[in-house]
Simulated assay, not measured.
Amino acid sequence: MKGTLRYLIGAAGPSGFGSNSTAEQVTEDCSSLISPHLTAIITGATSGIGAETARVLAKRGLRIVIPARDLKKAAEVKERIQKESPKSEIIVMDLDLSSFASVKRFCSAFLSLGLPLNILINNAGKFSDSLEFSEDKFEMTFATNYLGHFLLTEILLERMIETAAETGIEGRIINVSSIIHSWAKKEAFQFNDMVKPKSYNGTRAYAQSKLANILHAKEVARQLKAMNARVTINAVHPGIVKTGIIRDHKGLITDSVFFLASKLLKSTAQGASTTCHVALSPQLNGTSGKYFADCNESSCSVLANDEKEARKLWKQTRTLIYKRLCQPSSPKPV
């Protein structure tokens, strides 16, 4: 009850920010601390929270890389950002997160540019009402929200570690999760069933993918600490925002619920604030493996805090991806 009241009135937490804070507000004092030519990759930046995150970070002086499946939308976002911030550098590149081959191509193309990589924001999210499979034959929500981001992080991590060592500037990875991760139950959180489910529920699949995002952050944080790497990784809950995922499933009941609950919903500017805070705030130097909501460290579910579960999921995921990538491709029809 106390937490709900704090949320409703937008009370600031220890960070000095709260649920009503916007992405611009939380980064306002960071501009002078940002070294030139910092590079951030932001997935899912063609709309909603991702686009606002890209806009604000570009305004603060970062070079922004927008990987996207829809290059036309990405180009439109680039144009809008550069209209507001003419000196900003925005790079648009092709990426389909649900495809391992596409993730590999994107990473190869990005690394060939020879740019530093300071910030990786795994923001893209998908919600499927019905059961769909990726080209790799894995359930689409899990493939897009979790598996693709896992591989993206895996391939780019070395560059992030190198950049941090070369520049002395801490690298940061942010996994955008959701409070809905707490809806995932341990008995149903079975890897084989998530990648190739026999029965399907869209909300359950989404919750499981968002739980996997947190567990991924927890395990990679542990590994980075063991390596003494100057790179951190954290998970964030942006709040409940009427983004593209929700608009795709709108209807009479949904719209009525949003109208009645409008005071609980965040604007896109507010929804991007926690991601931007965790990406840039000097308060969070060295903070890794944590979960944030409303720009403050928060508690996640018991299952999301299970270190054994995090390690098991990481191993299962890595085995699955590399087994799939090492398979010879099917011959093309003549």
Results as ranks from 00 to 15, higher is better:
Cys300Asp: 13
Pro333Phe: 04
Ile34Phe: 07
Thr203Ile: 14
Asn122Asp: 06
Gly48Ala: 05
Asn192Leu: 10
Ser178Leu: 04
Leu264Trp: 14
Leu215Ser: 10
Val231Ala: 04
Cys107Arg: 03
Ser267Val: 09
Leu265Trp: 01
Arg230Phe: 13
Thr27His: 00
Ser15Val: 03
Leu157Tyr: 05
Val92Leu: 07
Ile321Pro: 04
Gly244Trp: 00
Met194Arg: 09
Leu215Cys: 11
Ala226His: 11
Val103Glu: 00
Leu38Asn: 12
Gly148Arg: 01
Ala293Asp: 13
Ile253Ala: 15
Glu28Cys: 12
Pro36Gln: 10
Ala269Arg: 15
Glu297Gln: 11
Ser301Arg: 05
Gln82Pro: 07
Ile9Ala: 08
Ile161Pro: 06
Gly44Glu: 01
Glu166Asp: 13
Val220Arg: 11
Leu113Trp: 04
Glu158Ser: 12
Pro67His: 02
Arg6Gly: 11
Pro238Ile: 02
Arg6Leu: 15
Met227Ala: 13
Ser19Gly: 02
Ile214Val: 13
Ser134His: 05
Leu284Glu: 04
Glu297Leu: 01
Val103Phe: 03
Leu156Gly: 02
Asp306Val: 07
Thr254Val: 15
Ser128Gly: 09
His37Gln: 13
Val176Trp: 05
Met160Gly: 02
Lys185Thr: 07
Arg69Phe: 08
Ser209Glu: 02
Ser267Ile: 07
Ser182Leu: 01
Pro86Cys: 05
Ser15Asn: 01
Ser19Val: 01
Ser128Ala: 14
Gly202Glu: 03
Lys323Val: 06
Ile169Val: 15
Asn228Gln: 14
Pro331Thr: 04
Gln327Met: 12
Tyr322Thr: 05
Ser299Ile: 08
Lys104Trp: 08
Leu224Asp: 03
Asn192Val: 09
Arg105His: 14
Ile66Glu: 01
His181Tyr: 01
Leu280Phe: 08
Gln270Val: 01
Tyr206Glu: 03
Val278Tyr: 02
Ile9Glu: 11
Ile253Glu: 10
Ser19Thr: 06
Glu24Trp: 11
Tyr291Arg: 09
Asn228Glu: 13
Arg55Trp: 00
Glu170Val: 03
Ala164Pro: 03
Ile42Met: 06
Ala279Trp: 00
Glu135Leu: 13
Leu97Ser: 04
Val231Cys: 05
Arg318Gly: 12
Ala205Tyr: 00
Gly271Asn: 02
Lys218Leu: 15
Tyr291Met: 08
Glu170Ala: 06
Gln327Glu: 14
Ser134Phe: 06
Arg63Trp: 01
Leu280Arg: 06
Ile321Glu: 00
Ala109Val: 06
Glu76Leu: 14
